[in-house]
Simulated scan of single mutants.
Amino acid sequence: MSCNSCLCSLPRNEDSDSLKVADHERAGNQSWNRQDEELERTFVGQTRAISEIKGRVLRLARSDLTVLISGESGTGKEVVAWAIHKFSRRAHQPFVKVNCAGLPSTLFESELFGFEKGAFTGAFKKKPGKFQLAHLGTILLDELTEIPLSMQGKLLQVLQDKEFSPLGSNGNTRVDTRILATTNANIDEMVAERRFRLDLYYRLSAVHLHVPPLRERRGDIDLLCNHFLRKYAALYNRAYTPLSDRIRDDFYKYTWPGNVRELENLIRCMTALGDEEIFYENIKNNGHSIGKKVSTLQELRKKAVSKVESEAIAAVLTCTDWNRKKAAALLGTSYKTLLGKIKEYGIKQD
């Protein structure tokens, strides 16, 4: 074989580089698709709002930005936080959750930042705080607004300088910890009332995700129900049984004040006991109802106009001794229209 033929059989450098780029892009797409599929299993839902949150979760997972996640209780804020950690470079490091609402105000500093031996009566040995336990990983401050105002300055220091001083220590401890936070409170109102530091709020809300309540994402109810039915059928070793049409329709009418958590707990009980009627017992015991409709502004405006109009017509009819033609003239409307309004509003002569 000639030298020329050997050279012709070898790929050119740019072709080799193109192949490498293509392989890299293909591997990246496959990785992204796997993450997307895994996220679908982690955070169930396909409505527009939830799809947007999922997209942001995957993008945020590739950064170390602090994220504030807001929403009503039971909407899935902790699931969002876990997903951000799970798909990040810190996924194999600790994920430490701090239930701020469950901590007495006197224990916040020692729980979050730890303490040295002899720092206070009963401190017989050194104890690391939650931030140290979350080193290289992620810390979730659940219900952040429950942190006392006196501790918020120290938290701000961690966000700014990545270091803090444990209780009883003369030196600072450095940590590499990503901070995620959740709240179900109106944090803007708390800032205005000076119950939450404005500088800390700005630090935490660089990225803000809001998880909508279940009543605003009813299109996800079927997916969530099927997910929980299969989950608890497997847990309790029962056959998967879909919801009856009756219970499914009523699920769509119900307002779900406890959101996804309430739905999951209900399906867990229904699956364990094999009884759909538990749903009706629960809402009756909790003082709720099915299909309680919340009026829109347009509907409220229409009701207000109807009330004023009815009262005005009744007053003019009384003044004219129920002379309908005279009343129509005074009201600036036709006789036929007035008769229709009297019938519509059920106005009767005393």
Rank of each mutant, 00 (worst) to 15 (best):
N282F: 05
D350K: 15
Y201P: 14
S73A: 11
T333Y: 01
L273M: 13
G114E: 10
L198V: 08
G291C: 07
E216H: 12
E189D: 04
V211N: 03
Q35K: 15
I221T: 04
G71F: 12
R26C: 02
K154S: 03
I179Y: 01
F120Q: 08
K20H: 07
F228Q: 04
E14S: 11
G45S: 11
I187L: 11
L167N: 02
K231M: 13
I283V: 04
K303W: 00
L149R: 14
L224N: 05
R261Q: 10
K326T: 13
S244M: 10
S306R: 15
Q349H: 09
R59V: 06
G28K: 15
S334P: 15
S73C: 11
L68Q: 07
I347Y: 01
I342P: 13
L155T: 08
R268V: 01
E309I: 05
G28A: 14
C269V: 12
F279I: 02
L229F: 04
G274K: 05
F87Y: 06
D222R: 15
Q132G: 12
N33W: 08
N282A: 14
K341G: 03
L149V: 14
D321W: 02
S334Y: 04
K127N: 10
L266N: 04
F124H: 12
F113V: 09
Y254V: 03
F131W: 04
C100N: 07
L68C: 10
F113L: 11
T66R: 12
N323E: 06
K302Q: 13
L107H: 01
C225A: 15
P148G: 03
E311Y: 00
G258H: 10
S16A: 14
E276L: 05
A83F: 07
